[in-house]
């Protein structure tokens, strides 16, 4: 059985817009699944439904047992500006009343994994966009998640920073056996990261294509990767 299954999920916003209609897909343990689609196709809504932040109007979100420990990363770093990097990364642990000493150790370890050793006491304002995003991912890692939900996390970053973070994310997910659901509107990014790409059509959002890929990382200049991108791009064009 899959870790998570969405069955014919529908969601309508308060203003009457139908965000999702008959959305069905499942995610297996250890999958790296991308939700790919144009802006406004309900990708973020689907992610928030999975996180349990909103409830579907109809249909079910079914878990294998219960929702595992979940981390969430937004498009913006979404850090507390009044707190240093260590305190930001420690937030999930503080909320769960993990003792301060242990919390500090785990948050520092998460920062170190994101290449931020030595920046524990830096405030967000002192960090670059890429470093802030690394703190945001470290915060998600600090709670040792089994499931990571990411909502266009690298969309605001430059290409080189983005490529570096893509590789780091793949390595982390593999090492820790984290299942990742990754929302993006980038064909290249979804092809690079995913073991499966789910293409979504807009208004109301539903899955129009599913593409299985060789899991990353890839040689970005290889013929194989170019072909994978072409397959994803074709499916996206067909959906539009």
């Amino acid at each position: 059985m899959s870790l998570l299954t969405l069955r014919q999920v529908g969601k309508r916003f308060d203003n009457g817009t139908e965000a999702l209609s008959g959305l069905s897909f499942s995610v297996d343990q250890g999958d790296f699944v991308s939700l790919l689609g144009p802006s406004g196709c309900g990708k973020s809504t689907a992610l928030r439904l999975i996180a349990g932040l909103i409830a579907p109007d109809y249909g079910d979100v079914v878990w294998q047992t219960e929702r595992p420990e979940t981390g969430f990363v937004f498009q913006e770093p979404t850090l507390m500006p009044w707190a240093d990097a260590l305190t930001n990364a420690r937030l999930p642990l503080d909320l769960k009343h993990v003792p301060r000493g242990e919390g500090n150790d785990r948050a520092a370890a998460a920062l170190a994994r994101m290449g931020l050793s030595g920046f524990e006491s830096a405030y967000p304002r002192e960090l670059s966009g890429g470093m802030k995003m690394r703190v945001s991912i470290a915060r998600a890692l600090a709670s040792k998640p089994k499931l990571l939900l990411m909502d266009e996390p690298f969309a605001a970053l430059d290409e080189i920073t983005r490529a570096g973070l893509n590789d780091d994310l793949l390595a982390l997910a593999r090492e820790d056996g984290i299942t990742v659901i990754f929302v993006t509107h980038s064909v290249m990014e979804s092809a690079y990261l995913s073991s499966r790409v789910l293409v979504m059509s807009p208004r109301p959002g539903r899955i129009t294509a599913e593409i299985a890929l060789t899991p990353g990382p890839h040689d970005r200049l290889s013929q194989e990767f170019a072909q994978a991108q072409a397959r994803v791009a074709a499916a996206l064009l067909e959906a539009a």
């Binding site: 996180a51 932040l53 969430f72 937004f74 979404t78 507390m80 503080d94 909320l95 709670s143």
Partner: peptide, 26 residues
């Protein structure tokens, strides 16, 4: 308070008091 931070705290099971103390007051 930043809406995304609010949602993040809720995702991590924050209580009203924790949201007040760690997000709204700062």
């Amino acid at each position: 308070a930043d809406f995304n931070l609010l949602e993040l705290m809720r995702l991590y099971g924050a209580s009203r008091w924790q949201i007040l103390w760690r997000l709204q007051l700062p």
